[in-house]
Computed example of a mutant assay.
Amino acid sequence: MTHVVLVLTPGVHLLDLAGPAQVFSTAAGLGRPYRLSYVGERERIDSAQGLPVQAQTEWPGDLGPDDLLVVPGWRCPRGMLPPPFSQQTLARLAAHHAAGGTVAGVCSGAQALGEAGLLDGRRCTTHHELQDELARRFPRAKVVRDVLFTADDRVITSAGIASGIDLSLHLLAVRHGPAQAAQVARSMVVYTRRNGDEPQASAVLRYRSHLDDTVHRVQDLIDARFTEPLTLDHLAAAAGVSARTLTRVFTRATGGLTPLRYQQTLRLERAEHLIAHGTTTETAAHQVGFTDPRMLRRLRSRTPG
Results as ranks from 00 to 15, higher is better:
residue 231 T to V: 13
residue 226 F to V: 07
residue 219 Q to F: 04
residue 216 H to Y: 14
residue 245 T to D: 13
residue 215 V to A: 01
residue 233 D to R: 15
residue 211 L to C: 14
residue 240 G to I: 02
residue 246 L to D: 00
residue 241 V to F: 00
residue 233 D to W: 14
residue 224 A to W: 06
residue 241 V to G: 03
residue 250 F to P: 01
residue 251 T to R: 10
residue 223 D to S: 00
residue 242 S to T: 07
residue 241 V to M: 03
residue 248 R to Q: 15
residue 231 T to K: 11
residue 214 T to W: 01
residue 247 T to M: 11
residue 230 L to C: 14
residue 239 A to N: 01
residue 216 H to Q: 13
residue 228 E to T: 09
residue 229 P to F: 10
residue 230 L to P: 08
residue 225 R to H: 15
residue 215 V to C: 05
residue 232 L to S: 11
residue 207 Y to Q: 03
residue 212 D to I: 06
residue 247 T to H: 07
residue 230 L to E: 09
residue 214 T to R: 05
residue 234 H to R: 14
residue 233 D to Y: 15
residue 243 A to G: 04
residue 220 D to C: 08
residue 235 L to W: 06
residue 207 Y to F: 14
residue 220 D to S: 11
residue 227 T to E: 12
residue 221 L to C: 05
residue 244 R to V: 05
residue 236 A to Y: 04
residue 233 D to C: 12
residue 222 I to K: 00
residue 234 H to I: 13
residue 236 A to I: 08
residue 245 T to M: 10
residue 248 R to N: 15
residue 217 R to L: 10
residue 249 V to I: 10
residue 239 A to H: 01
residue 222 I to N: 02
residue 229 P to S: 10
residue 212 D to V: 07
residue 211 L to Q: 15
residue 215 V to R: 02
residue 236 A to V: 08
residue 239 A to I: 02
residue 212 D to C: 07
residue 239 A to G: 06
residue 238 A to Q: 08
residue 232 L to A: 12
residue 232 L to N: 12
residue 209 S to H: 13
residue 213 D to T: 10
residue 221 L to K: 03
residue 251 T to S: 13
residue 215 V to G: 05
residue 247 T to E: 08
residue 226 F to I: 07
residue 212 D to W: 00
residue 244 R to H: 05
residue 216 H to R: 10
residue 220 D to K: 04
residue 234 H to Q: 15
residue 212 D to T: 08
residue 218 V to S: 06
residue 219 Q to E: 08
residue 245 T to Q: 13
residue 211 L to R: 13
residue 217 R to I: 08
residue 236 A to R: 03
residue 251 T to A: 11
residue 249 V to K: 05
residue 223 D to K: 03
residue 227 T to R: 12
residue 215 V to N: 04
residue 239 A to C: 06
residue 248 R to D: 14
residue 217 R to G: 10
residue 227 T to M: 09
residue 235 L to Y: 07
residue 224 A to R: 10
residue 231 T to S: 15
residue 215 V to K: 03
residue 226 F to N: 04
residue 246 L to G: 02
residue 216 H to L: 15
residue 208 R to P: 03
residue 229 P to T: 10
residue 230 L to A: 14
residue 238 A to S: 12
residue 227 T to C: 12
residue 243 A to Y: 00
residue 244 R to T: 06
residue 220 D to Q: 11
residue 219 Q to L: 09
residue 246 L to C: 06
residue 243 A to T: 00
residue 224 A to C: 11
residue 238 A to R: 06
residue 232 L to M: 13
